[in-house]
Amino acid sequence: MSLLESTRNTFRRDQVWSFLAPHEQQVNVDKDMILYVEGLSVSFDGFKALNDLNLYINDGELRCLIGANGAGKTTLMDVITGKTACDTGSVFFGQNIDLLNKDEAEIAQLGIGRKFQKPTVFEEQTVFSNLELSLKSDKGVLPTLWAKLTPTQLDRIDEVLTTIGLKQQCFMLAGALSHGQKQWLEIGMLLAAEPRLLLIDEPVAGMTAQETERTAELLTSLAGDHTVIVVEHDMEFVRSLARTVTVLHQGSVLAEGTMDQIQNHPDVIEVYLGEDASLTSSTKAGESYL
């Protein structure tokens, strides 16, 4: 074996020296709850983006967050992922991990992945390369320099390609994909990192009806093995997911339940349509606000 081959094997991703490998803190979900948000408040120049917000997410569930612009949806996701500091409150990942004491990189390493509305893929790289770059592995200089995909990692990429429906586009440049396919690829990039919790922001914006339907199927299939929180304005899409819906208003939780329960909730009707309106008879008007 040559010196080069010996060195490459030394730094294979599945044989990284223990002192180089990142320490992983295991999330405790003994109570079947993966996210605890309590008393969370965030102010920007006197404006309360979040106002004593409480939110609890079960392990493996698919939850939809809806609400008008300025309701606090993006700010909540920013706090969970370490992008924005809060004024008061607590955010725990499982029972044991205080996310407010972690930075963005540490939170991602814990298994929390976020997808923004606009797809951010490496357009000059192939679909395969995008997924390879996203694999959960030591990103240190030496391990990355001498990296070689293992059979397990190749299987993982193949599994993700199957899940997101892009096996035929495996060696296509990401920039040549349709808008919907780029969205699926970015979801695949999150999956390649093996997250426990996925935060998905407006995944179907700009999609065709067929792509929207496929995205609903994809996100539904992920629930169970992953916990998925979806922020979305398309109410027909939210209804198709058929999971618990949380309505935010002025930085707090206004209502929570199934889509049918939400559309007939008196507080939601009053806030978004006025006291005498009915979401059951004015669904389209209500959906344009939510």
Rank of each mutant, 00 (worst) to 15 (best):
F47N: 12
F47D: 08
D52H: 15
L53W: 03
L53V: 05
Y56K: 14
N58H: 13
D59I: 04
E61I: 10
E61S: 04
L62W: 01
C64Y: 01
C64A: 15
L65K: 09
I66F: 06
I66E: 04
A68E: 15
A68V: 14
N69H: 13
G70K: 12
G70Y: 07
G72S: 12
K73M: 13
T75G: 11
T75C: 11
T75P: 12
T75I: 11
M77H: 08
D78M: 05
T81F: 05
T81Q: 03
K83Y: 13
K83G: 05
T84Y: 02
C86E: 09
D87T: 06
T88K: 14
V91S: 02
V91M: 09
F92A: 02
F93Y: 06
F93E: 01
G94E: 04
G94H: 06
G94A: 04
Q95F: 08
D98H: 11
L100S: 07
D103W: 05
E104F: 08
E104N: 07
A105G: 09
E106P: 03
L110Q: 00
L110T: 05
L110D: 03
L110K: 03
G111F: 02
G111C: 03
I112T: 03
I112H: 03
I112F: 02
G113Y: 01
F116D: 06
Q117H: 07
K118N: 14
P119E: 12
P119F: 12
V121M: 09
F122Y: 13
F122M: 03
E123A: 13
E123D: 12
E124N: 15
S129G: 05
L131W: 01
L131N: 02
E132H: 04
L133Q: 06
S134T: 01
S134K: 03
K136Q: 11
D138Y: 08
K139N: 14
K139Y: 14
V141R: 12
L142V: 15
L142G: 01
L142T: 14
L145H: 08
W146V: 00
L149P: 02
T150C: 06
P151W: 10
T152V: 14
Q153T: 01
R156M: 10
R156D: 07
R156Q: 10
R156G: 02
D158A: 15
E159K: 13
V160C: 01
V160P: 00
L161H: 03
L161Q: 00
T162I: 08
T163Y: 07
G165F: 05
